[in-house]
Amino acid sequence: MRISALSEVLPGEPVSNRDMAERFGLHERWLDRMTGNRSRYFCDPDGPDDLPKTTGDLATAAGRRVLDAACIDPASVDFLILSTGSPDHLMPSTVNVVADRLGLNDLPTFQLSAGCAGAVQGLYTARALLCSGANRGLVIGADSVVKLWPADRRLGRISPAELANFALFGDGAAAAVVDADEDGPGLLVERIVLRAVGKGRAPAQTVRWYGADGAPMVTGPDGQERREPMGQEDYKAIERHVPELADAVLRELSEAAGWPVGQVDHVLTPQLNGVMAERIRQHLGVRPEQAVHCVETTGNSGNALPLIQLHRALRLAEERGVDGARLLATAIESSKWIVSGLAMRYRAAEKGQL
């Protein structure tokens, strides 16, 4: 499988930690120190018409952008995969709305319900389809956390822990054109790792479908009635297990490809937030110049984030023009523990080749 083009879409203007402090009563210095994220992006339902407002809008914009980048006719696409944890509706599937908007018809569509490993799940599925006879596909990862906010945007009834989550996450989308034909420029995928390893492990992340407006009232251990949180994170479990799982995936990819980690050109590490990304980089022994980070400026955009990292890694490879540059990537999903990763080789375009 060859990833021949990538794109990313981040809605509107970046929302800084100062903006978060002023709008939601969070502490700017705490956000700087505890998350390491400096900014993130949110869809604005009341914003300009030309800006994405939903997950479907984000996915459509990313799809259009990557089709333009690849200079291909939508009619040449044999399948569409969308990975998301925040579809616009239960029915119709957001992937089919996106297909319609992109002018795609009479082809298989797949919507994967996923989180941080969703983009790799999409690429894994795409590779299977290409191996079964398809020639070209489109893989999109997109998420929007704004749908979890109260419709009136009054966040005073959301707990501080839930508000802190909004500082970690953000909205965004990214897309990849994948080809069975390996004779062309882009990223040649040489290995893919994807496994669910959640047997006997408690979920470390829970996001409930109903968001803030539909949360039921529950009785807590103290006998007091309170609104059930729309999302929960076990940060201690994430801090303990994500680095070790990422290390295992990176070692597996390195051994399978025969590429010592210290000798590859780029390493894409898990991106929960800026602080964790740096801790994981150090744990993995990845040099700063090898690491491709983005979460500190984009926020954690869930399914979009690994593809955004890939997009930026591809741009770095293109800028440096090193044909054969090697890339290793790993994404760990803590919701019910999924490990994933990619080993890729960059192929530069020949002279006169798009």
Rank of each mutant, 00 (worst) to 15 (best):
V139S: 05
A343Q: 02
L245I: 09
R157N: 13
E244C: 10
A75T: 06
V95K: 04
G137C: 11
R38Y: 01
H89L: 07
F42Q: 00
A175Y: 00
E289A: 14
P150I: 04
A167Y: 08
D68N: 11
I238M: 08
Y124C: 10
G302A: 14
W30M: 13
P150V: 03
G85R: 03
L272F: 11
V9Q: 05
A277D: 04
E13H: 12
P306F: 07
G103W: 01
E244L: 15
R347A: 07
A277S: 12
V120A: 01
M217T: 15
R195G: 02
A69G: 13
R38V: 13
V95P: 06
R226Y: 14
D88Q: 10
V145E: 03
N96E: 05
A304L: 06
R279K: 14
A119P: 03
P203R: 01
I238R: 03
F24T: 03
S39M: 13
V139M: 01
V145F: 14
A61C: 06
G85A: 14
T35N: 11
R23L: 15
G186P: 11
E289R: 08
T60A: 13
G302V: 06
F79T: 06
A202L: 15
A126R: 06
K351I: 05
R38I: 13
T297M: 09
T109H: 05
D213H: 03
G170D: 03
D171N: 11
E296G: 10
H283R: 15
S7R: 00
T330E: 00
Y346S: 06
H241Q: 11
T125Q: 08
G115Q: 04
L90F: 14
H241V: 08
M230G: 13
R240F: 14
D106N: 14
H89W: 12
E244G: 10
V15F: 11
L245E: 13
G63D: 04
V189A: 09
V120M: 05
Q111L: 08
V197E: 09
D179L: 14
